[in-house]
Write a protein that binds this DNA or RNA. Structure first.
Lengths: 347, 347
DNA sequence: TCTGGCACTCTCGATCGACGAGTGCCAAGT
DNA sequence: ACTTGGCACTCGTCGATCGAGAGTGCCAGA
């Protein structure tokens, strides 16, 4: 009853099932994989694997299918992340090269991931809270309004219009804007967002009475940009891949699409990465708390400029998925995007 | 053989079919609609309608289903846009109120449309080419790089980083930036984009030799923002609604989802509006050239601040769709969004 | 021109049986 | 203590058959 062989059998089952998408029986197994034993032996092993809850028979007289736990063991102990071919590496580079914009980078990334893995790709925008302020620009609009443009080290840009409640188009107004601009950049530029937020708050207290109202308006708008849930965004691509694979996927396309429209829950999901930020995280089927995604697996990884991971990206597909290859793609893309952000950062 | 009655019959067929999604027979028709005639008479009318190509029988002994041409007649001659309830109007207002951003407006709009119509919603970002420049800001980054922030009257903001090829952090560099900023805003602010583009180009020629290179870099980056296909963007929501309606929709969910990922073709589609920009445009089934969307109808309308329509929005659903209600929703949302943009414009 | 009646056509769903895949278990072999 | 071939058994799948029901087309009469 060698435990090793049982795991080999599990591995073979997963591989075959992923490839054929049909329950795999003992006979087929011994034919396709040269385990040195007979079908009967494999059947015994299968019975044990089933007892352990790693595989499962849809009905009495069908082959076996891996359970979520089975996939888990496969991912953790029976497979290695398969390195990408050089062609694919090159394709990634070419596809992401020449993005002009953070928006553009994110857009290309999500499409690339989707076409690479033929699954649904999910990319989170670099989070503001984990970034640093690069510059804050104030642009007067109309007589009393001010547009605040916030530029972050990841290249992300947010803007907001506030009413300062006083005339800005005359001489004193203009110098006020200049003063505020200088002040806030002085304390905030190059500083992590969380720190900047508190420093800015202090700035309001120090302001002259005359300028306080305007300063207050600007600072609280900046604060909003952080608190607001909108600051966290995800982008999807490849939903069509859910339909492909014909009837393969459960009839549950509806619930999945619905779950994908709940960006808030998606973000929460992406946020829960494994411990090591440099490792690909895999969440399989029911390991995943979100209703509607319990027949899917999420393969994700953090990315970001510098050492910090500022956001995550990943792909979502049926639990019956080619994990080694998918993991390789996700990892490669995450690394590449990180590099690109690094370059932009250096700029 | 009164033509009028025949059209009444067509209308009844469309209405019933939309509601039940099952082919409608002569008996059911006379029962549900009090046309003052017998089933046999209706059958004769149906035979004629079929000859005209307005309805069609899936098989010998089933009821009739409207053809694309039948829906067309229904939309053009047999239905009025059904005004929205006051509750719905209020809901639209509440949902769109409090958007902080153009991104936010677009995002809320697309979600609103999707949930209102229970179909796939499509919203195009206000096109740059049809907008006017509000302000252009230059922010030095690092020693020789410049971030250009372009603010448009619709509230849209684009940014781009260029390398000017000379040091900007010293005194002369700073004054150079100030000069360029002043110059370009002088000629471009408040001006339609197309005009601004040519004026800016001229500015390069007039520049001092010393400053020309920097000016050139800035202007050509601004030009890029226009030419680039990226400048046109669409946002989708409600894909899950395709799956809802169970098997109702053809098995063609896959192709539809694929077509929806081709943003370029979607944009072209949205671009082809009817003549009157204030009217809802309806494209039914095969009237639509895009492969994969030929079993769907697109209900769309332009929107935008001021008199000009700067972009379109709409919904996409099965040809078997409640046209009057959908058209009402699309029109209401388009108008509301236009209002909001107007307000922002005024700001 | 409309209407009731009637024969005809076709789809849909249920039933049934043969087939085949795959298992579980047992007894024998190593 | 494992492994293996054999064998009976279980079920799901596939195809054919059949009846019911819905809907039509057409005709003859009002």
């Amino acid at each position: 009853m060698s435990e090793d062989r049982r795991l080999m059998v599990l591995r073979a089952i997963v591989q075959d099932y992923v490839q054929t998408s049909e329950p795999v029986g003992s006979r087929a197994l011994v034919e396709r994989h040269h385990l040195g034993v007979s079908a009967a032996t494999v059947r015994n092993d299968m019975a044990l694997l089933e007892e352990e809850g790693l595989i499962h028979a849809p009905h009495t007289s069908a082959g076996r299918v891996p359970t979520d736990a089975g996939y888990r063991v496969f991912v953790d102990r029976l497979s290695a992340v398969k390195p990408l071919g050089s062609g694919e590496r090159r394709a990634i580079g070419q596809f992401l090269e020449g993005a002009v914009d953070l928006d553009d980078v994110v857009d290309r990334t999500v499409r690339l991931l989707a076409s690479l893995t033929r699954q649904v790709a999910v990319v989170q925008y670099p989070s503001l809270t984990r970034s640093t302020v690069r510059h804050i620009e104030l642009v007067p609009m109309g007589s009393s309004h001010l547009m605040i443009v916030l530029i972050v080290n990841t290249g992300r840009v947010e803007q907001r219009v506030v009413d300062t409640g006083r005339v800005l188009s005359d001489g004193t107004g203009e110098s006020l804007v200049a003063t505020i601009r200088a002040r806030i950049n002085e304390v905030a530029a190059g500083v992590p967002f969380t720190v900047a937020a508190t420093r800015l708050r202090r700035l309001v207290d120090e302001a002259d009475d005359a300028d306080r109202a305007a300063m207050e308006a600007v600072v609280s708008a900046l604060g909003d940009a952080l608190v607001e849930e909108r600051e966290e965004r995800v982008v999807l691509a490849g939903q069509a891949n859910l339909a492909r694979a014909g009837t393969d996927f459960p009839r549950t396309i509806g619930p999945i699409l619905e779950a994908l429209e709940e960006h808030v829950t998606l973000l929460r999901l992406l946020g829960q990465l494994g411990d090591d930020p440099d490792l690909v995280s895999v969440r399989i089927g029911t390991e995943n708390p979100v209703t509607g995604l319990q027949s899917t697996s999420l393969v994700s990884m953090g990315y970001g400029s510098g050492a910090e991971r500022v956001a995550s990206l990943g792909v979502l597909g049926p639990t019956r998925m080619d994990y080694p290859t998918t993991m390789a793609s996700v990892r490669a893309v995450a690394r590449y995007v990180s590099e690109i952000l690094d370059e932009n950062q250096a700029t």
